[in-house]
Every structure is written in C-alpha cells, then in structure tokens.
Amino acid sequence: MARARPEPVQVVKQRRDAALSALVEGVPYVRFLGIDFDRRGDELTGVLHFSEKLIGNPMLPAIHGGVTAAFLEVTSIISLSWVYLWPDIESGALDLSEVTPLTMPRLPKTIGFTVDYLRTGLPRDAYARATVTRQGRRYASVRAEAWQDNRDKLFAQGSGHFLMPPAVSVADD
C-alpha cells in the first residue's frame, strides 16, 4: 500500500503556528511582559522583548528579578503545554485555529518554581528554552534556562513542578 503523501508545508506550518499563538496570545500577562515564541519544528524558544518597564534596578540597569522568574515560568508552562498538546494538534483531534482566550485549553498550574539568578539581566532581549524532564497524568517537572548575548552564559535557570489540567490523553509512566 502506498504511503500517504506528506501534507503541504504551508498546511503544517499554519496549523502549528495557529496552535502556538492560541496558547500564547490568550494570556494577558504574557502580552504585558512582551513574550513571544520562536518555533522550529516542535522546539520552542521564548523571547522576552526588552522594554523600559521591565527594569528593576535603574542604576545598573537590570531586568527585574521577578520578570526573569516570570519569563522562565511562562516558558516552562507554554513548553509543557506544547509537549502534551502536540500529538492532538498534529492528529487534528485538537483544532486551535478558532479558539479565543475564553475557549483555549486549560494550562498546567505551577505547584512550585525555583529560580537561580546567575548574572545580571541586561537591558536587551532575552531568550529561554524549557525541557520537560518528566510528564505524567497529574504531575510534570520542567527545567528552563535563559540567556541573552551568549547561549552558553545563562543569566538565570529555573525548575518547577506543575499540576496537569484534568483529562489530558496522556498515560502516566
């Protein structure tokens, strides 16, 4: 039997980008901080676009530690949601192209989050990636790293535990 023809590239991109923007743009606080996400296949990179209102210490100046913590937490939640929703987005079981902020899927809830501050957050854009280290039916664990000019020089790292939304179709390991 012939293999099904791969979908046209623009169909794949449109579906994935619509799903990602539905998850990200529905959250007022994510817009307030100026965070969006770059996507390469299923890999996400959070981008914190610098603005003056993010400054915590005007003398240095430096990004507020709370903003850094929030950036890592937002990147963790979106990346975790992306990982667990991905199979349903790809299969077509979940269509996020028409959702509004009021009908978007429930996101995981943070149980606890720890942030290590390694360097001053400079007044420029910052980037972050998160890795889901354990994903279960009820709980998930995520690590995240944030950097600015140099990928190898992290300015902050974080790790957290999350409560998954009810009725996700993922088996606990």
Binding site: V27, P28, Y29, V30, G66, V67, E73, V74, L102
Partner: peptide, 19 residues
C-alpha cells in the same frame, strides 16, 4: 487585568505574584 494568567477565571499569573 494586565497581570491575568488565566483569561477564563481572571486569576493573576504566578509570575506577577513572584514579582
């Protein structure tokens, strides 16, 4: 309202509480 993390309930985002 700019600090809301869950648009369905209006609950503040954890990041704002962290700050």
């Amino acid at each position: 309202e700019r600090l809301v993390g869950d648009p369905q309930t209006g609950v503040l985002h954890g990041g704002a509480v962290s700050t």
